[in-house]
């Protein structure tokens, strides 16, 4: 029982990352009709916003300490972050410690800008081209972004810690009447789950309850008619692209403390997120969220030893196996609508 609860928590956590990326993908697909293979790269760039802010906050003044030596035996250069010099040791250290949450503030405008430049500069030229062309160009763009990040930050992972206050884990076992130390779950992963729930809720509310959202939904349903009504739908869709990029970006920022960011983390998520979108149904936002959580939970259960002992290697194929079964039973995915990508 305790194992099942633990894997359920894990699945919700994994699923929230999948759902956030798949949500952005579906938003772009639903509004612009573009299959955006660069979406994983946007997630990665978000994580590197956190890395960059951490690096910026750690820019230091240098002083030589003649009493200590470096690895070559030369006098040691002691570095003190400017933030510490300016705000004092305590406040300075606190600002550096909170670099990941602070990065959210930086990431939102940066990601909207990146999304805007991507859409206006490249993707808009591919609206009327076949999906295969769109996939190729966005995939190429993803590789370019990935290589740029590698050039700047190197190939190895860069540790980007959560604030000290959220390090450690919470003992659910005590709460649920199990033995202590049996069901423990890291604080930051719980925050990640709550954060994604809020973001997903906010995106749905935005589309549901604002005029802007209403126009966008109308445009998703029938772009031509909305255009004929005198509404500049292209402008709104560009803004939606920026919003989708921002969602991927903040998902990346918050993911940074879970696994140290590296340049290919976007690709690791991209393929899975596409499966999520297809399983959920192309163009369906609730479908993407549902499928994200479902596949996350299934993946977690598949890596349980009890399951692996019966089906060895099931953890490696579970997602694709589920996708095959669902597409056989429901060819349009869980919540897919008639007519999407079927013309």
């Amino acid at each position: 029982m305790d194992v099942i609860i633990l894997q359920l928590l894990n699945g919700l956590d994994k699923g929230s990352a999948y759902a956030l990326i798949a949500l952005g993908l579906t938003l772009i697909f639903g509004t612009l009709g573009v299959v955006n293979f660069a979406h994983g790269a946007l997630f990665m760039i978000g994580a590197f916003c956190a890395v960059t802010l951490q690096k910026v906050l750690n820019i230091s003044s240098e002083a030589i300490d003649p009493t200590k030596t470096d690895f070559l035996g030369n006098p040691l250069v002691v570095k003190t972050p400017y933030v510490v010099n300016w705000f004092g040791p305590e406040t300075g250290a606190l600002i550096i410690d909170w670099s990941v949450p602070l990065a959210l503030l930086v990431a939102v405008p940066i990601m909207i800008l990146v999304g805007f430049i991507m859409e206006r500069g490249l993707i808009k030229h591919f609206y009327h081209r076949p999906h295969a062309d769109q996939i190729l160009v966005t995939f190429g763009l993803a590789i370019v972004m990935q290589e740029l990040i590698k050039q700047g930050f190197g190939a190895n992972a860069i540790p980007t810690g959560a604030p000290d206050a959220f390090k450690g884990s919470y003992d659910f076992g005590n709460l649920l009447g199990f033995d202590p130390n049996v069901i423990i779950y890291p604080y930051w992963r719980m925050i990640y789950f709550a954060f994604s729930a809020i973001v997903i809720g906010a995106v749905f509310a935005f589309l549901r309850f604002t005029t802007f959202g209403m126009v966008v939904r109308a445009g998703m349903a029938d772009r031509e008619t909305v255009g004929l009504l005198g509404i500049n739908i292209d402008k709104r869709f560009t803004i939606m692209f920026g919003i989708a990029a921002a969602v991927a970006g903040i998902a990346g920022v918050m993911y940074a403390p879970i696994n140290s960011p590296n340049y290919h983390m976007g690709m690791d998520f991209l393929v899975l997120s596409f499966v999520v979108v297809v399983v959920g149904g192309m163009g369906s936002l609730p479908g993407a969220v549902l499928a994200g959580f479902m596949l996350g939970i299934l993946e977690s259960f598949a890596s349980m030893n009890e399951v692996k002992n019966i089906f060895p290697g099931i953890d490696q194929i579970i997602i694709y196996l589920t996708a095959i079964i669902i597409l056989l039973v429901r060819p349009r995915g869980l919540m897919g609508k008639r007519g999407v990508m079927e013309d």
């Binding site: 305790d2 633990l6 699945g11 130390n181 069901i183 977690s300 349980m304």
Partner: peptide, 9 residues
């Protein structure tokens, strides 16, 4: 995480 969790118990 899904491989670490079973280590706990």
């Amino acid at each position: 995480s899904s491989y670490i969790a079973p280590v706990l118990n």
